[in-house]
Amino acid sequence: MANDTLKTASVLAFERKLDPSDALFYSGNWPEREDVPAWQPVPLREKSVRGTISNRLKTKDQDPAKLDAAIENPNLQTVDVATLPADADTLKVQFTMRVLSGVGEPSACNGADYRDKLIATVNGYVQQHGLGELARRYAANLANGRFLWRNRIGAEQVEVHVAHLKDGQADTVWRFQALEHRLRTLDAPEGEAADLAALSALIESGLTGNAHVLLQVTAFVRMGAGQEVYPSQELILDRGRGDKSKTLYDVDGVAGIHSQKLGNAIRTIDTWYPGAEELGPIAVEPYGSVTTQGKAYRQPKEKQDFYTLLDRWLLKDETPSVPSQHFVMAVLVRGGVFGEAG
């Protein structure tokens, strides 16, 4: 029965439970995957290029004389670029990830009754379903190399090593052939299903607090000697500063991928939204936002967004469908600030 006195807390925040570091890029050769000294950092360098006018023209600019005049003023730009050396054919991408316990326990909440109801609801979910379904999907996105983003496309071979670190040493190491995994269904090939299940169980034990879980993820991507690789691109808010049209991310001179971008790939597990059969998994977001498509797949008017589902579950005691419960829990794992708008 709905509790009419229970209100959403005005201050409500959750810490993320999957905590990746930045990923760093190294170069080497495919046969030397196990040879640590063979791998050298991938630096950034600048390149100045002379482009052409190729943007869509306004109607008033389509006069042939004006277009010829515009083409005489080339599109000059300086960009950052990262490439493998001419004698290395493989990119190594490495990061660590902590798996933290306390899913559903707010880091800040100014309503004691709401907090109690929230924790009781989360505990009920864990007792009935466990966190195995979420853990399996997170593990699949490590094994399939989704976190490589554009670096995964067109690669000849991709091998992902996931090590469980204890006392700074690799206690267990799983090896996955990433290109054999299916990105749309988050399934493993038959020969690697057991390893994926073991990794899933470890991640679940971290989320439930039964084990301390620190993973080291290392991906080897065979791309070809001298090929361009793709670190994160920096967002330059002050366009008046700098004269580069593209600035890439590096850590002390080593090209890398932002931890936020890794986290987005790892939580790309939402196949429970309307239309998922056609589009495949999207990143877990309260409104199902996909910025690259300019679309939100969980519109509030369809009652499938995080806030609607959470309020009905906690305030109205209307238990959502099992897929919607998975989604709500995945948002709590993601973390964020979800208090009542003022």
Rank of each mutant, 00 (worst) to 15 (best):
K17W: 04
V162M: 02
R146A: 07
T5A: 11
Q177P: 02
S27E: 15
H161Y: 13
A198C: 04
F14E: 13
E192C: 09
H129G: 00
R239V: 15
A211R: 15
R115T: 06
R50N: 11
P20M: 10
Q233P: 00
K17H: 14
R16C: 01
Y125E: 09
D35N: 15
N151D: 15
Q157G: 00
K17L: 01
G335C: 05
D19C: 14
Y297H: 12
R298D: 05
Y273R: 05
A265I: 01
A225K: 15
D305V: 11
I282E: 01
L118Q: 12
L199C: 06
I236M: 13
A211H: 12
W272E: 10
M223I: 14
N110W: 07
H212F: 11
V217C: 04
L179T: 04
T271R: 12
Y26T: 04
D4L: 04
A255V: 02
Q127N: 07
A283L: 00
A38Q: 13
N144M: 02
G242A: 06
D68L: 15
G242P: 05
V173H: 03
A13H: 07
Q293C: 01
A69E: 14
L18V: 15
P189W: 08
V36Q: 08
D80V: 06
Q304K: 12
P85L: 10
M223H: 07
A88I: 00
H161R: 14
D195A: 15
D311M: 02
V93M: 14
G132T: 09
R150M: 13
G104L: 03
K66R: 10
T247C: 13
T185A: 10
L67W: 07
G288D: 04
H258A: 11
K316Y: 09
G130T: 02
T8A: 09
E180P: 00
P74V: 13
L310Y: 01
E133K: 06
I282R: 02
D116Y: 05
V79W: 08
V254S: 04
V322S: 06
K295D: 00
K244H: 10
Y138N: 12
I203N: 02
G130E: 05
K66E: 12
K17E: 04
P286I: 09
R136Q: 14
P106Q: 08
L179M: 13
A265K: 06
A139I: 03
R146T: 03
E340H: 06
H161K: 13
P323G: 00
T292Q: 12
S10I: 06
D187M: 11
L196P: 01
T8W: 01
L44M: 09
I269D: 09
E180K: 14
P274Y: 05
G339F: 07
N210W: 00
D68T: 10
F327D: 01
R184N: 15
I257P: 02
Q325K: 14
V36H: 07
G206R: 02
A211K: 15
S232I: 06
A194M: 09
A170P: 13
L315C: 03
R152D: 02
A140V: 03
N123S: 12
F14P: 12
